[in-house]
Design a protein around this nucleic acid. Structure first.
Length: 525
RNA sequence: GGCCCGUUCGUCUAGUGGCCUAGGAUGCCUCCCUUUCAAGGAGGAGAUCACGGGUUCGAAUCCCGUACGGGCUACCA
């Protein structure tokens, strides 16, 4: 790929929330634009007004924001305001730029005049024609062909009808569409940046519709016009568009326009190797959560099991692309610096959650403790462990707790489960653990003595707690694990967790003493 | 059915004719570290490079075919 500034775009239709597959295409486009110092645009392909899903637009914009794929040009407050909120839903204005860019509007539904203009030029030049079959008639023709076991191609009935005559019928109110005159024979050559040239036989191609009966253009026309008008240099899109390439190349040629670089990105599949769906991990990546404390947006929060956006970004970039070296952990800036669209894979990849979580663990551990706490806190709040209106002391306590778990978590979503016992009055004792460490002879006495010794241990820090505990343990003839394990279970209810003495230090004297008392009860029961 | 695209460890991938007895990561297993769990460190198992033919002194890499998977074949994108 040339290193000239590339203008790329992500052009979803607002028919649902984007999933990681869509966003990976957006991410590659973004990376290419940033790598070359070009621009990344967002364009909304809303030419099929019947399939609009309210809220999808908000999800698209929020997802891009969450992942850190900021667009240089795209929907702004004014253009979103013009859109019918009943059909599109509303968009949080905070997510929208004031000024969308010089090539707008970035909603196809707001560019209808331009499409008509282009279609008219094609009509005038004799490169397109009006056709008067209705949808029903076409369906009947298709069904008939299928009955005969023949592939269906439109019969081009109106291709040679004189334009003046056709215009007259149109003026008389005849329902109509406009079709492009495709070559009827010979090879059609298309190019894909990853696959090179593909040669198609013109006889397999249809005179496809470039203007629907409702006056809206279909994708084939709208996308090509917009990509041209918006000076898009590299069209990265899903592999499903590969077989429409002949349409696009012929249209562009009929218009005499420069053909951008087309690059068809392979699919991202679910863990089961099937197309992504809600069942196999294609959760929408909708982001931006409110900080329960300040009420501010925490930008970049990604609702994907508590995966950090920077980790998702990193992981997604490596599904279908690699820098060619044994490098895996690369933050955004490095990804931008190293990205090379030519190295995008041609074969589909599976979105592997295990690997995502591993990457996430690396990012989690690399976070400054305060930052980690800030990002994890909303999860504790959501689980009801920290009140929404927590005071400073409670927030500080939660932060201290989280600091102990930082290197153990793979996702933020695990935080409530991992830290729950810190926030309850008493932990839930895991029966198996209690049986193993609290029930045996001598445990009750040991824990009770330890409680007594801890009453005025001072200062209350990990070091002091450790020496007191070891001393009491030694007095009871215990060593190593026999000293720590009963205490661990007594204090947390379970056998696994953070370093024992740090944990006790954070819990505080009152909680520790109460839990030791409870453990003694259990031991004696 | 027709046309098109794809196929390297379970998974993500490196590999563009000899450096490949195929490298890294993840997951799994073992050991070390250690108060537990993680993390970290050291190892291990795991890919006859979909299959079959060619081309070549030499192929995962080039060519052909087959199989399998996928896409398109809409007045959806």
């Amino acid at each position: 790929m040339s290193e000239k500034p590339a203008r790329t775009r992500y052009a979803p239709s607002p028919t649902g929330s984007p999933h990681v597959g869509n966003l990976r295409t957006a991410l590659f486009s973004y990376l290419l634009a940033r790598h070359t110092g070009g621009q990344f645009l967002l364009r909304v392909e809303d030419t099929d007004q019947t399939r609009l899903v309210p809220g999808a637009l908000q999800d698209i914009i929020a997802s891009l924001r969450a992942l850190g794929l900021d667009y240089d040009e795209g929907p702004d407050r004014a253009s979103v305001a013009r859109v019918d909120a009943a059909k599109y839903g509303t968009v949080d204005p905070a997510l929208l730029p004031e000024e969308g860019g010089a090539y707008g509007p970035y909603f196809q539904s707001q560019r209808l005049d331009r499409y008509r203009e282009v279609v008219d030029t094609l009509l005038d030049a004799g490169k397109a024609y009006y056709a008067f079959e209705t949808k029903e008639e076409l369906e009947a023709m298709r069904a008939a062909a299928q009955m005969r076991g023949e592939p269906f191609l439109y019969n081009r009935r109106y291709r040679d009808l004189p334009l003046a005559e056709a215009r007259k019928r149109v003026e008389d109110g005849a329902p109509h569409v406009v079709r492009l005159k495709m070559p009827t024979e010979g090879p059609i050559r298309t190019y894909d940046a990853l696959r090179g040239e593909t040669v198609w036989d013109a006889t397999t191609q249809d005179d496809f519709i470039i203007l629907k009966a409702d006056g809206f253009p279909p994708y084939h026309l709208a996308a090509m016009v917009d990509d041209h008008d918006m000076e898009i240099t590299h069209v990265l899109r899903g592999e499903e568009w590969l077989s429409s390439s002949p349409k696009h190349f012929c249209l562009l040629q009929a218009l005499g326009w420069e053909i951008p670089v087309f690059l068809h990105v392979p699919y991202v599949l679910g863990a089961d190797g099937k197309k992504l769906s809600k069942r196999n991990g294609a959760k929408p990546v909708v982001g931006v959560i409110k900080d329960p404390k300040t009420g501010e947006d925490i930008p970049g929060y990604v609702d994907h099991d508590g995966v950090l956006p920077e980790a998702l970004f990193n992981h997604l970039a490596l599904v279908g692309w690699s820098p060619g070296e044994d490098l895996e952990i690369m933050p955004k800036e490095e990804l931008i610096a190293r990205f090379d669209a030519n190295r995008i894979s041609r074969s589909p990849g599976i979105f592997d959650l295990d690997k995502l979580y591993a990457t996430n663990g690396v990012y989690l551990r690399a976070l400054a403790p305060e930052d980690f706490a800030r990002r994890a806190l909303p999860y504790l709040a959501k689980a009801g462990l920290v009140p929404e209106d927590a005071d400073d002391a409670a927030v500080q306590y939660a932060a201290d707790v989280l600091a102990l778990e930082q290197e153990r978590l793979k996702t933020l979503a695990e935080a409530p489960q991992a830290t729950e016992f810190f926030f309850r009055d008493l932990p839930e004792y895991v029966e198996k653990s209690a049986n193993k460490w609290l029930k045996p002879q001598g445990a009750a006495e040991y824990l009770s003595d330890l409680g007594a010794a801890l009453v005025d241990a001072s200062p209350w820090d990990a070091q002091t707690i450790e020496s007191v505990t070891r001393e009491v343990g030694a007095r009871h003839g215990r060593e190593r694990g026999d000293i720590t394990h009963p205490v661990r279970v007594a204090v947390s209810g379970r056998e696994a967790g953070p370093s024992l003495f740090d944990m006790m230090a954070v819990l505080g004297r009152e909680r520790v003493l109460a839990r030791l008392r409870r453990a003694v009860e259990i031991a004696r029961a």
